[in-house]
Amino acid sequence: MSHCLVIDDSKLIRTIHCRMLAQLGLTVSEAENGEDALGVCSGRMPDLILVDWNMPVMDGFTFLKTLRAMPAGSAPKVVLCTIESDLEHISRALAEGADEYIMKPFDVEILATKLIAAGIALSPRPQRPDPLADGR
């Protein structure tokens, strides 16, 4: 995996998610909504897509259905991001073609776990230095 597309109508959320994905060794691009994201996918199909559920213009479900109908649209791994926690929404996401879902808010460790569960290989991250390792 090398290229990830982050789709969210919030610039702040896109920035946070892009930083996390960059920490995990991925190259990242972004789109403000599903319609803009389809344009990105038409130009260069990403390996991974992190898409918000609720967005104006085109929501995550409509994007996902449209993506999966595109030539090569079955190739990217898609992780649907949501604040919805009920089983019906999660089941619908998976039925529509999402490979995984993730509950907002999340941190980089949770994101890494979800990406690995979706079958996405991540670059090893540098280990944090152990402040107690030098014996102080």
Rank of each mutant, 00 (worst) to 15 (best):
S2Y: 04
S2D: 06
H3P: 01
I7T: 11
D8V: 11
D8P: 07
S10R: 10
K11P: 10
I13G: 00
R14C: 13
R14M: 15
T15A: 12
R19A: 15
Q23K: 13
Q23P: 02
Q23H: 09
Q23E: 12
L26P: 07
L26E: 09
V28S: 04
S29H: 09
A31E: 15
A31S: 15
A31C: 03
E32C: 01
E32H: 06
E32Y: 03
G34T: 08
E35D: 05
L38G: 14
C41R: 03
C41N: 10
G43D: 08
G43H: 09
R44P: 01
M45F: 07
P46F: 09
D47F: 10
I49H: 01
I49V: 13
V51M: 03
D52Y: 04
P56I: 12
V57I: 15
V57K: 09
D59L: 12
D59W: 03
G60F: 08
T62G: 10
L64C: 10
R68P: 01
A69G: 13
M70W: 00
P71C: 10
A72Q: 08
S74G: 12
S74M: 14
S74E: 04
P76K: 01
V79G: 07
L80M: 12
L80N: 03
L80C: 14
L80A: 05
C81T: 13
T82H: 15
I83H: 15
E84I: 05
S85N: 10
S85A: 06
S85R: 05
E88A: 02
I90Y: 06
A95Q: 05
A95K: 09
E96Q: 08
E96V: 02
D99W: 02
E100Q: 09
F106D: 07
F106A: 07
F106L: 05
D107N: 14
V108I: 05
E109G: 09
E109D: 09
I110T: 15
L111W: 07
A112D: 02
T113R: 15
T113G: 04
L115N: 10
A118V: 00
A118F: 00
L122S: 12
S123N: 11
S123W: 00
P124I: 01
R125K: 07
R125M: 14
P126L: 12
Q127C: 06
P129M: 04
A133G: 11
